[in-house]
Amino acid sequence: MQECGLVATDIACRRGDRILFRGLSLSVGAGEVVHLAGPNGIGKSSLIRILAGLLRPFSGSVERHGALALSDERLALDGHEPLEKALAFWQRIDHSPQSHADFGLADLLDVPVRYLSTGQRKRAALARVSASGAPIWLLDEPLNGLDTHWSCIAQAAIKAHCQAGGAVVIASHQPLSLAAVKIVELLDFQP
């Protein structure tokens, strides 16, 4: 996997006329996991979108080295298509091989995406991220809706991605059971 990393410097985020956080700097390199922690509404999702380049920060800058993969509350899989075809659409764009980590989706491949449960949708999103071949993963609440079993497997997949030289940023209000995680507490950056 090529050298990858993400460096955010002195980020401030404004939503409406409210500053959510300011002066936030973080960096994540190959093999590292950063956990963005904090209560609801603190700006975790906004920060993920800023890191992804989808939202302009109010101030500060983000440097990206390497391709990004994002999983947020938007599934980005066609609801009427069977899961296999919906995932294959992204594989055609990414020119990636069939996903190796299947997140227990083998039995669901012929089910239309709109019939999937919350946890199954989350696993489908993780499969899409892991199949993209991008070294940097941005995961917004990746464990929401997953039961204990799949939560463990998802975290194992994240760990495996890091060991293979990837970088991961996770926004989650839940504590993670991953070892060696850099925690960024967003409450510390409130104005």
């Binding site: 992804a52 989808l54 993969a69 994002l70 947020d72 938007r74 599934l75 980005a76 764009i93």
Partner: peptide, 10 residues
């Protein structure tokens, strides 16, 4: 559905 976000990331 977030398709445009995903395309932008690519």
């Amino acid at each position: 559905a977030g398709m445009f976000d995903q395309w932008a990331l690519r």
